[in-house]
């Protein structure tokens, strides 16, 4: 518990140092997301399928883009890519576990508020959504997306440990990743009617309790997995 307290203290320092730009970007992203959310109803009527992708991009990518430049992943000396804070804190008497936890706190601050607003906007902005979801189903739905936020989104936090990569390797892996996501998404689209959001809605509505349990398991597992993954990455990386 003490580790989380120390991690929180360090995270607050970083967030405070960038609060102006962070708040500006956050407000801007939220406004932009809400504009996009206006077409949520159209999506549920299957008249605007691109919304599905837009929403996913906003949900997972905006949090990672929210940090100001100094606190983002960048190329350092040689072949090192990392977030400068990770190097800075390793030169101080801060344990690696605390460094990891502080990255997770920061990512949580950057992702959860925006994501909650997105999820809260759904019933507020869509007649179709309200009609299709009971309150319990809605809770299950929120939990599913929260679990996704952790299991998928916190990969970004873990990757902030960085690594020693050639630029060409980064470009290559980025292309592979995009291709992978595209294929996965296309497959999903074949099997699940009406897009990804629609599919999670069906899950929450038809298998409510199963969804809640699965979301809790996936969320907790993801939370622990990415921390362990980040620990491994830090251990492997040469911060020279």
């Amino acid at each position: 518990m003490n580790e989380w307290k120390q991690a929180y203290r360090l995270a607050v320092f970083e967030l405070k140092a960038s609060r102006k730009s962070l708040l500006t970007i956050m407000v801007f992203y939220i406004a932009m997301s809400l504009v996009v959310m206006m077409s949520f109803d159209l999506y549920l009527e299957e008249r605007f399928m691109l919304f599905d992708l837009l929403f996913l991009a906003i949900f997972f990518l905006f949090p990672a883009w929210m940090k100001s430049k100094e606190f983002q992943m960048q190329k350092m000396d040689g072949d090192l890519w990392t977030v400068p804070s990770v190097v800075m804190l390793q030169q101080l008497p801060v344990s690696r576990d605390v460094i990891i936890k502080s990255r997770f706190v920061i990512h949580a601050v950057c992702s959860f508020p925006l994501q909650f607003i997105l999820l809260a906007a759904m019933p507020l902005m869509s007649e179709n959504f309200r009609e299709g979801m009971s309150p319990l189903a809605y809770i299950a739905f929120v939990l599913i997306w929260l679990a996704l936020s952790i299991a998928v989104g916190f990969m970004m936090a873990a990757s902030e440990a960085g690594g020693n990569y050639k630029t060409s390797a980064i470009v290559k892996s980025f292309i592979y990743m995009l291709a992978g996501i595209a294929i996965l998404y296309a497959l999903l689209f074949l099997f699940a009617d009406g897009g990804f959001i629609r599919w999670t809605m069906v899950l929450a509505a038809d298998w409510t309790w199963l969804s809640i349990v699965a979301a809790a398991v996936i969320g907790i597992a993801g939370w622990n997995y990415w921390q362990a993954d980040m620990r491994k990455l830090i251990r492997k990386t040469d911060y020279l």
Binding site: A17, S68, E70
Partner: peptide
């Protein structure tokens, strides 16, 4: 280190508040 990494965004007194309690 020869070049401080990750210090740029902080003001002098913020760095002090960050570092001092660790020792």
């Amino acid at each position: 280190p020869q070049k401080q990494v990750g210090w740029n965004a902080y003001k002098g007194h913020e760095l002090k508040e960050l570092i001092a309690p660790l020792y």
